[in-house]
């Protein structure tokens, strides 16, 4: 698909990378994301498998351990940078929201 890969992250990519800020078994990520988001975000097994492959190919994560078919991964510097860039992008979106709608909300609360 002609798009700059991982320039922006989908919600599922974001949470998978967030889980891998600490070394973690690939298989455990599905449960971790679900508990981290209170069940709001769920990552499918196929999506997780393929994203781990793609992240590893893009050198955003690296394999740390392999016990049979169980493999654990951790973020690389490139992965941290992508996660950080996404965090900043999301923060800017929040700040824009606050600037445009935050005051109006505060005034609305005062009036009530």
């Amino acid at each position: 698909m002609p798009r700059e890969k991982f320039k922006t992250l989908t919600e599922q990519m974001y949470y998978i990378l967030l889980c891998l800020s600490k070394e973690c078994y690939g298989l455990d990520i599905m449960d971790q994301v679900s508990s981290m988001t209170g069940g709001r975000v769920k990552v499918g097994s196929g999506t997780l498998y393929n994203l781990l492959e793609q992240f590893a190919d893009a050198k955003m994560i690296r394999e740390t351990k392999a016990e049979g078919r169980r493999r654990s991964y951790v973020l690389t510097e490139k992965g941290y940078a992508a996660l950080d860039a996404e965090y900043r992008r999301l923060r800017r979106q929040m700040e824009d929201y606050q600037r445009m709608l935050g005051k109006a909300e505060e005034e609305g609360e005062k009036q009530t």
């Binding site: 698909m1 989908t10 599922q12 990519m13 599905m30 769920k42 990552v43 499918g44 097994s45 196929g46 999506t47 393929n50 994203l51 793609q54």
Partner: peptide, 16 residues
Amino acid sequence: PVPIETDPVVDLEILH
């Protein structure tokens, strides 16, 4: 159940 594919972009890439 949680579907096997949950990200439409990744899903389409793999399928293609």
